[in-house]
Design a protein around this nucleic acid. Structure first.
Lengths: 226, 226
DNA sequence: GTCTATAACGGGATAGAC
DNA sequence: GTCTATCCCGTTATAGAC
């Protein structure tokens, strides 16, 4: 599978990241998993955080690869189906086990990297790019489902859907939310956002204003939500 | 402020957690911050993960306290405003600085604890309870805004909104999303969900089906989204 | 490029006095 | 209950041979 050792290390890093998280990632454990010495890891990646950064890029490439393969062969499918596949894909019933054989489940690794980026600024750039790519992908699919919607509304919806997906992932991986329920909530959210985009171009139904009218930064003390 | 040392340690732990994260939390650093010795920390909290668990409970109490104070004095406000305060509160323009003086910003700490729970199962129970409490709070407020909506729809909307808030927090804290934009997206999401709840009880507007019709577990290979 | 061996150190945890 | 002092283990990272 891995042509050279460098790639083998990155694959092992991705697996170990899923299994132990950023915090639990031990260089010697991943080296053993890759079948190499720890020294070789440092030779190729300078230090631990360099390895982490490269692993993130490796996962980005892998994600792109599967997404591309998806849009290729069985191409002209219903955009709504593609959208659901894009947002529900990798939401397995049992964490660690991919919902489709052959496609690795990297959601744990991504979740960890996102959390790790809060205190490791050198991860941010790569993470931001990966996040932006996903938003672009979802925006594009939404545009195919609702061509009449404006670009701002489309990208806002895409941002909400991807952020929701990430929030659901965190809850699910933390054992707080059942995977099936996460899936159901995500699927509903897609419907809700699509309905919203429909209304956005047909203003003849004055249901509820999307933008709230009253300011929020009132002088009343806000609750400590988080 | 802190009547006894134990509380002082917990307050220091919360602050240090915000500043360094779960991974970066050093027992001696927090002890110094609390003005006590490391030994005393171990005396009161057995070990590091015990301290983490108690800190989570401490933060839960603190959140409840502020939420309660909110619903108290200036009570009978517009439920929509209360809802926005509940979901937008603690979304400051600059992380670490509370959007309201006197109310500590614990969003970083919560985000860290959620991520930490993935690989520290002993945190899960307390975390799940805190999450459920927030969902209940939001469900209650939504019910006041849309009394005609069914309980299932209300709690699903609440779950989506809280999970979205958490996802936005993660992105914002990772430096990937501008705080103002996070706020705007969250505010819009509230409008979108309320509109959805309105439609749920007025089926005379056949806009778009909330529940998608086609199954997702097709045999086509899904993309590797995450 | 890859290994073995080891240096160097950070930080969790405890012993024992007060 | 609280402190000082210290142990000691796990982990990162490097030196140097092949």
């Amino acid at each position: 599978m891995a042509t050279d050792r460098r790639t083998a290390i990155l694959e092992a890093a991705a697996r170990t990241l899923t299994r132990r998280g950023v915090r639990g990632l031990r260089v010697d454990e991943l080296a053993a998993e890759a079948g190499v010495s720890t020294a070789l890891v440092y030779y190729h990646f300078k230090d631990r955080s360099g390895l982490l950064r490269r692993t993130l890029e490796f996962l980005t490439d892998r994600a792109r690869q599967y997404t591309a393969g998806q849009n290729g062969a069985a191409a002209p499918a219903d955009p709504r189906v593609l959208l659901e596949l894009a947002l529900l894909g990798g939401l397995p019933d049992t964490p660690g086990v991919p919902d489709t054989p052959g496609v690795p489940d990297d959601s744990t690794a991504w979740s960890e990297l996102r959390a790790g980026a809060v205190f490791e600024p050198e991860l941010r750039a790569a993470l931001a790019e990966a996040g932006a790519a996903r938003v672009r992908e979802v925006t594009g699919l939404l545009a195919r489902v609702r061509p009449a919607a404006g670009p701002t509304e489309l990208s806002s919806s895409a941002e909400r859907l991807t952020a929701l997906r990430e929030g659901l992932d965190a809850r699910r991986l933390g054992g707080v939310l059942h995977p099936r329920h996460a899936r159901a909530l995500m699927r509903e959210a897609i419907g809700v956002e699509i309905a919203h985009l429909s209304r956005a171009v047909r203003p003849n139904q004055p249901v509820q204003p999307t933008q709230p009218t009253q300011p929020v930064d009132a002088s009343t003390p806000p609750p400590q939500f988080d």
